[in-house]
Design a protein around this nucleic acid. Structure first.
Lengths: 225, 225
DNA sequence: ACCTGAACACCGTTCAAGT
DNA sequence: ACCTGAACACCGTTCAAGT
């Protein structure tokens, strides 16, 4: 039976869930598909291209349907969707973070973030910066969230931070607060800080009334709430 | 001449600068040191342990000397130092982000972030969350900053986003604004958003007067300086 | 104690040859 | 057009044997 690109990506994601990113080899992907390793190169030029296709598949559904509500609520929804999509597959965050795809799902996701910021009155140049900054946070958080799962499965988590931290109380408490927290709550908390920071740099007018000079471009920032 | 651990790390970092993380192999590290690959395992149990030691070396000097000034200025200094250290070696950000070290330089860096937040009245549990969130941003930004350098050297940057973005104007402008910006300015901008978000959740009192109820926790805030 | 030399069990990728 | 079978040039890691 002939292989299609979709079959290859599906088989690769199945293997990813079973063995993790470090166990994802072209030979094993081929084995999952009942084929020799060389055959994969008829469909993807190399492993990197296959990983790009996997990443594009993983972020399906981040950008659509378009979120509604206030701009910050929209960003919460989008960031939350991105995290959930990354969590759907083992090492999903590492897979997507390691690629720079410009395919439809990835672009739709990016556009949704930009639109939300646009609705807040942020000009496209600054919206680009902010969108990337937001994604750094989402990826960083989710990569670490999944790393803890991997370490826990290997019996290496939680680590004895009390000893490792050199008995410095503040460091011990801080590391423990991260290790023991509900990941969703911690994710929401950090995201909220970021959104508050954006809000502090948006003229209040942009949410309720016509525009005023915009601190995001030139002038000094002023608090809006 | 006998090898010491420091020699191995120094040779590995030299090779990292020459070939990048993907070209960093135990065999090549050994070659740099004029030794056979197996000899390295007398000093580090495996490649991961060597990478941990490299990461620990890279972040030397982030936490010390202790930064001074207002809490947010301290965090700017620390985040800036971390970025500069990561930029010192090719793929430095990827190397450090891929490790979870609990050695002295790494701990000192973490403690400096926690102290800065503590001086703003943030309790250690929340300071831990915030410190991790800040580091996600710094690593995400710097990994991408270095990725652009790598792509540029390979002649694959800047990519033709105009075509790739499917001609959506907002996406094109946003991606271009990121690609063409001064990385240091973009870094400072996103960091400032984050710091403003923290400030928005700290009682104003914590910076000028005695405590008032603290939205960061259930309990009242405590001034620490 | 530290290193060599050689091996083991893998990788990603290529490519003539088959169907 | 798609796949096999075999090869090439590598990996990380181990370990008896040397010094």
């Amino acid at each position: 039976m002939l292989l299609r690109k979709n079959d290859v990506v599906a088989g690769a994601l199945k293997l990813l869930d079973a063995e993790g990113l470090d166990g994802l080899t072209m030979r094993k992907v081929a084995a999952v598909l009942g084929v020799q390793a060389g055959a994969l190169y008829r469909h993807y030029a190399n492993k990197k291209a296959l990983l790009d296709a996997m990443a594009e598949k993983v972020v399906e559904g981040v950008g659509t349907p378009a979120p509604t509500g206030p701009w910050d609520r929209q960003l919460e929804i989008l960031a939350g969707r991105l995290r959930r999509c990354l969590l759907t597959h083992r090492d999903g965050a590492r897979v997507v973070a390691g690629t720079f795809v410009a395919e439809s799902n990835t672009l739709a996701s990016g556009k949704a973030f930009l639109d939300a910021l646009g609705s807040a009155g942020v000009p496209p140049e600054r919206a680009g910066w902010i969108t990337f900054a937001l994604k750094y946070y989402v990826f960083g958080h989710t990569i670490e969230e999944q790393a803890q799962v991997e370490l826990a499965q290997a019996g290496q988590w939680p680590r004895d931070v009390t000893v490792e931290a050199g008995h410095d109380p503040a460091v011990v408490i801080a590391v423990r607060s991260v290790a023991e927290a509900d990941p969703a709550a911690r994710f929401a908390y950090g995201l909220r800080l970021f959104l508050d920071g954006i809000a502090a740099n948006i003229p209040a007018a942009s949410r309720t009334a016509p525009a005023s000079p915009d601190p995001l471009t030139d002038a000094p920032a002023h608090r809006t709430r």
